[in-house]
């Protein structure tokens, strides 16, 4: 995974995640939207063969990277509870 910041402000961030697809981004988007501090969380894959998805997150004033970090921790936790049961 390669992460590039295209734009960043106090309450929004636009990222490019090279090498990822729907598998990870749809999951991340879901957990971002669960967060109460998030207003917009959206991803877009401009071309299906290139694999350079854009992720846009806007929050209610919190640091957007901090919000993404929190969503990732939720994914890790959910995966851990499932791995234990297999």
């Amino acid at each position: 995974m390669e992460v590039k910041i295209v734009e960043i402000g106090d309450d929004f961030v636009k990222l490019v995640l090279r090498g990822e697809g729907h598998t990870y981004l749809n999951l991340l988007q879901h957990y971002l939207l669960e967060d109460e501090d998030v207003i917009v969380a959206r991803y877009n894959i401009p071309h299906p063969l290139v694999g350079e998805p854009h992720l846009y997150v806007r929050t209610k004033g919190k640091n957007p990277l901090e919000v993404i970090r929190r969503a990732n921790e939720k994914i890790v936790e959910a995966c851990n509870t499932l791995i234990e049961q297999i």
Binding site: Y24, N72, E73, V76, N80, I83
Partner: peptide, 12 residues
């Protein structure tokens, strides 16, 4: 899936 989330956190 877990390693993808962990990798992104590390980059952030």
């Amino acid at each position: 899936l877990r390693s993808k989330a962990e990798e992104m956190n590390k980059i952030i």
